[in-house]
Amino acid sequence: MTGPSRTSEVLEITTTAGVVQARQQVRVLAQQCRLSLVDQTKLITAASELARNTLVHGGGGTMTALLVEERARRGVRLSFADHGPGIADVDLALTDGWTSGTGMGLGLSGSKRLVDDFVLDTTPGEGTTVTITKWGR
């Protein structure tokens, strides 16, 4: 009973409208998963930050969203992938207030605080994948 249980949906994020679509898709999943209102809001906000990162810093990419089930708990897992420049200094990028340009520098560090699991996988020159999971209580 571990791992993905439903078919995943892949969304292209290539415009600012894609960021809005990502938020809407995540909202539907979060409601299906019966997350509390606060947890829904946290997850959608984190998705919004990461989708924007994918667009702005990664030059566009995809969001893969799915419901997961593990040890009798359910959750929503989102994976944001791009083939952008990657992140040279991960620790620095996860520091509050650090920004590569636009924004308030809360995108990565802030969204990490909003979810339960946060995995950042990046290779300079090849791209970045951020996978987050929010579990139902």
Binding site: V38, K42, T45, G110, R113
Partner: peptide, 13 residues
Amino acid sequence: RPAVAITLVELGL
């Protein structure tokens, strides 16, 4: 909304 306020605080804003 409360949920928005809680999220913003957690986000660091």
